[in-house]
Amino acid sequence: MSFLGKLLFKNKTQDIVSGNSDSGLIKGDELKRSVDGIFGRSLFVRLVDSGSCNACENELAALSNPYYDLERFGIKFVASPKHADVIIITGCLTRNMLNPLLKTFEFVPEPKFVITAGDCPETGGPFKDSYAVCGPVSKYLKVTMHIKGCPPEPEAIISGFLRFMDMLKTSKI
């Protein structure tokens, strides 16, 4: 079969093979069970970039490539905040993005959760001392969970989702 027409992965809940030889596998079944159990088969996520360097967005977009293909476990990035359960925020939160961010959050129906991804939203990252930055995000919104990294690698984001669902299960939120 030629390169363009090849089917890379066939099994729906196949485990995710890590790019780092040391961090092993992410169990597809486990992820699927969590999403099925807690979010009724679909965890809908809306992204807001509040002033990133774009590497964080690249990694979030990578979650849809065939290696990770998050949608097969029921985790989907949606177009409208009105469809979302979670908003995931990247970037250092610039002054110019504060209102769009708060507005987007407002439109997410209850119950809603905020996850921040990357060092920027947590601390402002390397941009924290700027006149144009008003972060961190936690000044304005209650952050349920943070995923570390600059940028967090796709596996770290997936583990983040798992951790988030564990927190819900044990109702630590």
């Binding site: 002033g51 970037g91 390397p126 941009f127 001392d129 700027s130 006149y131 930055v133």
Partner: peptide, 11 residues
């Protein structure tokens, strides 16, 4: 544009 203006030159 410039929603993401971070003021990098100044920093």
């Amino acid at each position: 544009h410039f929603w993401k203006h971070k003021g990098i030159e100044k920093i």
